[in-house]
Design a protein around this nucleic acid. Structure first.
Lengths: 352, 352
DNA sequence: CTGAAAGCGCTAACAA
DNA sequence: TTGTTAGCGCTTTCAG
């Protein structure tokens, strides 16, 4: 909270504010008439509406959304909580969310969870409840049980985007990470790779765990298992370090690495090609996850498994809008399908 | 605007809402006492404060910031208007803005200007004024004069980030694009390049124009001029197309291209290396602008001119906070310095 | 269809 | 320090 202001100061700085009452006086009508003229579907005559709108334009009036929210109980704001934006998947999602919500008359209040401390991250969400947002999208973060309960109590619909907290957890929209990763395993094995390693996404996240589990399962179905597995923490630097460890000793080097997301995979590729001077895919094949735009850029040309981001965002928005209109609508947990995208970082060997 | 609700429905859906009056009753104190307990620096006794806070916790009360805003005239929200997020420069800036403002107790209401229509973009800003935001950061968009006047009239401080609209325009924070580009020209000429081309940023933007002008000026100082110049529109696809045109005929091929930003430069590099099979920098050297993180990634390893993004964001935030506290503070237009970052996409030839 | 009147949940004088 | 009393700017009954 900033310094308190002396009494008159506020009034002064707001002196330019034009209210509905000013319009009313200017137009010689009642204040409620002005309100109606600015309310979709209110019962106003055409003449009245035109008269008010004209006056409003003349003195530069615009309704105060906050005052409206106070009474309607709807702020037309949706909170989007996100942990970081360096993985291109999230700016992309954010842009889509923002456009989709804007089209529906909602605006996004954005919250970046403070780095490191999970406790602080939770505090941010509490703060956000004070803003009377109509809904919350939690992208790639998990919320404590206490917190999700609070959201429920406050009646604000909450939707987890790209995270899942169990069958009894909050509503969520994800893609089928388990089977996506399983599909990658199948592909790698059938293409002929035999020494397969994994740099996982963060094990503390549902996506990270699901992808790892699915991948192991996929290998197991061929009687195989990982030759190496390390936690990349969804962090480029960490993943690069893991790649160095994995590949620096030739005798232990895997012939294929599944990296938990594209963002890390780009770093891994840089290490393999430019630090260790290995050929991709001849020496080591690499597969990512997400299919962010840069995965298709020729410098990377990364084989990956797509997350249907457009569909995921649209589903999230639609679902949230529904819950906002029908607060007692039961939760839903949507799991969408992606597909394997074959590019240059994996080869086409003979099936052994 | 959504469907109207019947009278009781709103009350019902909000029935969970706990007000300060509820706390007051529960604690057996006045409603204003509750308000004070939640106001930094208000005159409340310790005993009263504790008592209220305890009651509040017991019945799950949190102050309604919207109601507070209505009376204080400050919403603690800052609007950030941005055109797109695929150039990593902007998510990076957004993340920094969000964290910086959050630290000061402000939150960001984000607005993505609709694609294409400039008119719609302006409409978005008008809409945003209705939200009583305390300040506006316009990142990489320009506003019509009428609009900036409206912002001024409504008393909401406006700051242009990475855009400039002339000495008499709104307050702005930019980097010295002109001299940055001029420095690049100097470097290229002195390194020995002689057939120098430019794929400009969008000519409709101040950064695009300033970089082009500075670059031309830099060349002129050596008695040189551009062998080719095309507008890349700050769009990766467009820039790639321009690169194809520029370089497909060997006889006309430049030996160095300055691309208006890194985002486009990555696309240009992909074209040169993977479509036209040219060597960079041996056949064609490439220089970008911004120094986004990916420029340092080994797959690109792009020579570029840095924009001091951290400093730019910090300056913008500080400046805006000041203007919010002192509405009559005079405008300032800050222009920060970056530096030439030499990497692998330019060679070190003999000076001719 | 229109106006008068009663608040939404809170802060900020003003007295006590 | 505390309680009482006005509103902030708007929507929404309720009469007319």
């Amino acid at each position: 909270m900033r310094k308190k202001r002396i009494g008159s100061s506020r009034r002064q700085s707001r002196s330019t504010r034009v209210t509905s009452l000013d319009v009313a006086r200017h137009a010689g009508v009642s204040q409620s008439a002005v309100s109606r003229a600015f309310t979709e579907g209110a019962s106003v005559s055409d003449a009245m509406s035109k008269r008010v709108l004209k006056s409003a334009r003349e003195i530069g009036y615009r309704p105060n959304v906050l005052a409206r929210s106070l009474i309607t109980g709807r702020s037309n704001m949706v909170a989007l909580v996100v942990a970081y934006l360096d993985n291109q998947f999230y700016p992309d999602a954010l842009e889509r969310f923002s456009r989709a919500f804007q089209e529906q008359g909602y605006h996004i209040l954005i919250f970046l969870t403070p780095n490191g401390s999970d406790e602080k991250a939770q505090a941010v969400v509490v703060e956000l409840l004070d803003y009377q947002v109509d809904g919350i999208v939690a992208a790639s973060i998990s919320l404590s049980e206490r917190l999700t309960r609070r959201c429920q109590e406050s009646g604000i619909p909450l939707l987890l985007f790209n995270r899942h907290q169990g069958k009894d957890g909050p509503a969520s929209v994800t893609s089928d990470n388990f089977n996506g990763a399983r599909r990658i395993a199948k592909f790698l094995v059938e293409t002929g790779y035999r020494r397969i390693a994994h740099i996982s996404g963060w094990r503390g996240s549902s996506t990270g765990r699901e992808r790892e589990d699915g991948f192991r399962q996929g290998l197991a179905e061929y009687g195989m298992s990982l030759v190496d597995c390390r936690d990349g923490m969804y962090d480029r630097q960490v993943a690069m370090e893991m790649a160095r460890h994995m590949c620096s000793i030739e005798a232990h080097r895997p012939d294929a690495i599944f990296v938990g997301n594209d963002h890390m995979a780009f770093g891994v590729l840089d290490v393999l090609r430019h630090e260790l001077n290995l050929r991709v895919p001849e020496d080591v094949a690499v597969v990512g996850y997400d299919d962010v735009e840069a995965a298709s850029w020729k410098s990377y040309d990364l084989t990956t498994f797509s997350q249907p981001i457009a569909e995921m965002v649209d589903t999230t928005v639609a679902e949230l809008l529904q819950r906002m209109e029908t607060p007692d609508k039961p939760f839903s947990q949507t799991r969408l399908q992606g597909e394997l995208i074959l590019r240059g970082t994996t080869g086409r060997r003979e099936k052994t």
